[in-house]
Nucleic acid binder design. Structure first.
Lengths: 160, 160
DNA sequence: GGAATATGGTTTAAGATTCAACTGTTTTCG
DNA sequence: CGAAAACAGTTGAATCTTAAACCATATTCC
C-alpha cells in the first residue's frame, strides 16, 4: 500500500496482525449486533437499544431513571433517547413523569406492560447471546475478553 | 437441546462475569464506533462505513467490485449499499459501470478522487484507531482479542 | 425450448437517527 | 439580587436505514 500523503508523515500504520484483528473486530461487532437485533425484533418487537433501555429501567430503584442518566447508561444521545422514549411510550412500555426536585427534568418509568415484555423477551435473548458469544469461548477467553473490553470502554482517556 | 419457547423454563442465564463482560462489550463497541465515525466524518466527510467501502474498493483488483461482493465484504444489506454507493457516486468518489459478463450486475469503481480522499483520511484514521484501541492493549492482549474475534465473526454456526 | 425460480440490483415509502435550534430551569458569580 | 452561563430535555427538518416491492437477467429443470 502506498505510504502516507499530505501532512501524515509520522503515521504508525497497523501491522499485519493489528490490521487483521481490527477487521475481525469490526465484522464480528456488526454481525453480532445485527443478528441479536433482528432476533429480538422478530421475537418481541423491540430493538436491541430499546431492550437495553428496558433493562436499565428495570434495574433502577423504582424502575425509573432520569433521561440524562438513562441516556448515558445506554450510550445514546439525548435527542435519540428522547425519540426512543416517545416510541416506547407510544407502545405503552414506558411513561414519562416530571421530576419534582429538578423541574427541568423528567423520569422515564417502566410500566407493568414494559416489564412484562422485558421478562418475556429476556430468556430468548440471553439464549441467543449465549449461542452467539459465550458458547464459542472458553472460560479463559471470556476472562480475557472482559479485561480487554474494560480497557477499551472509557470514552476519552481524559479521565482524571 | 433445551426447549426454547415462550415459557423459557430452561434458560441458562448469564453469570456475574458473563454479564459484566457482555455489557462492557456493548459499551466499548458503541463508543469506539461512534468516536471513530465522528472523527472520520469531521476530518474527511465520510462515515466509517463509507470509509470501509473505499478501503475495500482500493484493495480490489482494478479498484472495482461487484455490488454483491462489496455488500458482503463490508457487511451491509444490498439495499443499504445501493444507497450508500449512490451517495458516494454523487460525491464523486465512486462510479458505477454495468458488468459485461453478468448483465444484471454492476461494478462499483473507485475514482481518482475517491482514492485521494481515502489516502488523505487514512493516516488520521489509523492514528485514531491506534489511540483508541491498540495503544491501550499489550501485544498479548491484541493477540487474545484477535483469537476471540475470529471465533465470534462467523454469522451462523449452522453449516449444514 | 420454455416456464418457474433464483439472483443482482434498484427504488419507494416508512421508520430511525442526527443536528441544530429552542424552551424552561438551575447554577454561578460579580 | 440579577445577568450570564450551564443544564435537562424536546422538537423539527434533513439525512440515513430498513423493508418490501419491483425490474431485468440467469439458471434450473421438466
Amino acid at each position: 500500500m502506498a505510504p502516507m500523503t499530505a501532512g501524515e508523515e509520522g503515521v504508525r500504520w497497523l501491522d499485519a496482525e493489528e490490521q487483521s484483528v481490527w477487521r475481525s473486530l469490526l465484522r464480528a461487532q456488526s454481525r453480532i449486533e445485527e443478528e441479536l437485533d433482528r432476533d429480538l425484533q422478530a421475537r418481541s418487537g423491540v430493538s436491541l437499544v430499546e431492550f437495553g433501555i428496558l433493562v436499565a429501567l428495570s434495574e433502577a430503584p423504582g424502575m425509573r431513571m432520569r433521561m440524562r442518566v438513562l441516556a448515558d447508561s445506554v450510550i445514546v444521545s439525548k435527542s435519540r433517547l428522547s425519540h426512543q422514549i416517545t416510541r416506547l411510550e407510544r407502545a405503552g412500555y414506558v411513561r414519562r413523569e416530571p421530576c419534582e426536585e429538578d423541574r427541568r427534568g423528567f423520569w422515564a418509568i417502566l410500566t407493568d406492560q414494559g416489564l412484562k415484555v422485558l421478562r418475556e423477551a429476556a430468556g430468548g435473548h440471553v439464549t441467543r447471546v449465549r449461542e452467539r458469544v459465550f458458547d464459542r469461548l472458553t472460560r479463559e477467553q471470556v476472562r480475557q475478553l472482559g479485561a480487554v473490553m474494560r480497557l477499551l470502554e472509557p470514552g476519552d482517556g481524559a479521565g482524571g
